[in-house]
Structure formats: C-alpha cells, structure tokens
Simulated scan of single mutants.
Amino acid sequence: MSAATLRPARAVQPAGRLLFSLFVTPIFAIAMLAMAVLTAPAFAHDAKPTAAKPQGWSYPFACCANYDCRTTHTGEVLEKPEGYVIAGTGEVVPMSDKRVKDSPDGDFHWCAHQAGLDAGKTICLFVPPRSY
C-alpha cells in the first residue's frame, strides 16, 4: 500500500455550508455588535462647573438625551405664583410638576425638546431652592 492510500480523503465542503459561512457569519457578527452598542449604558451630558459644583454634574439621561439641557440665563425662568414660567415660550411648569427637579448647583437648568431652543417644550426643569 502506498502512503497516499493511507491518508484520509479531504472532505469537500458542500456549497450550502460555504454560503452559510460567507454570508450568515458576518451578519451574525454585525448583529452581535449592534446589540452590544444598543445595550451599552447611556450616559448623560454634563452641566458646566459652577462655584457650587466645581466638578460639574451630570444631567439624567431621561431629561436630556445627551443634548437637550443647558443652564439658563438670568430672567429666562421666572418663579411666579402659578409656577415656573419659561420666558421665551410662555410655558408654565407648575411647581408640583414631576418635571421639576432640585438643582444640584443652585442654578436654573432647562431641558427641552429641540436641543434647548426657545421653541422647545420642557422635559425637565432644575430649580434652585425656592425663594421666601
């Protein structure tokens, strides 16, 4: 017997299995990568540092979706008997509204749809301690 007859024959991969490995495997890899990206923890963006919070602080993701919050300028949010009035839109956010949050740095912060543009609708409003 020769050495060639003692070696096992090399298996030929069926065409269907070749197609599976060429097309399905990369699709599976892309799907797994997409799942990893989509299930990664979402991080909120940060408020700018202030004297009260020199390290800054993070807006909750539910309020900002990474771009909808900003510190307001003086007079943009007015404290009135009916609630907090957003001067640019006239929107009134009652003080008991669930969108009203305590401000960690003592400044007003407005989170609104449309990236905080004056035409936006309030998602969250961070307010300093109430005046007496």
Results as ranks from 00 to 15, higher is better:
residue 5 T to R: 14
residue 11 A to S: 13
residue 13 Q to L: 14
residue 15 A to L: 00
residue 17 R to S: 15
residue 23 F to G: 09
residue 25 T to L: 10
residue 27 I to Y: 04
residue 27 I to H: 05
residue 28 F to G: 00
residue 28 F to S: 00
residue 29 A to R: 13
residue 32 M to Y: 11
residue 32 M to E: 11
residue 32 M to A: 15
residue 33 L to D: 07
residue 38 L to Q: 07
residue 39 T to H: 11
residue 39 T to S: 14
residue 42 A to Q: 10
residue 43 F to M: 14
residue 43 F to H: 15
residue 43 F to I: 12
residue 45 H to G: 07
residue 45 H to Y: 08
residue 47 A to H: 01
residue 47 A to F: 03
residue 48 K to P: 01
residue 51 A to Y: 04
residue 60 P to D: 15
residue 62 A to H: 08
residue 64 C to G: 15
residue 65 A to N: 10
residue 67 Y to L: 06
residue 68 D to V: 01
residue 69 C to S: 03
residue 70 R to A: 14
residue 71 T to C: 01
residue 71 T to P: 00
residue 73 H to S: 14
residue 75 G to H: 03
residue 76 E to Q: 12
residue 76 E to L: 08
residue 77 V to C: 04
residue 77 V to A: 05
residue 78 L to C: 04
residue 78 L to Q: 09
residue 80 K to G: 02
residue 83 G to Y: 05
residue 84 Y to K: 03
residue 87 A to Q: 12
residue 93 V to W: 06
residue 95 M to V: 05
residue 95 M to E: 04
residue 96 S to Y: 03
residue 97 D to R: 07
residue 98 K to G: 00
residue 99 R to D: 04
residue 99 R to F: 06
residue 101 K to F: 03
residue 102 D to V: 04
residue 103 S to Q: 01
residue 106 G to M: 13
residue 106 G to W: 09
residue 106 G to Y: 08
residue 112 A to G: 10
residue 113 H to C: 07
residue 113 H to N: 04
residue 114 Q to P: 01
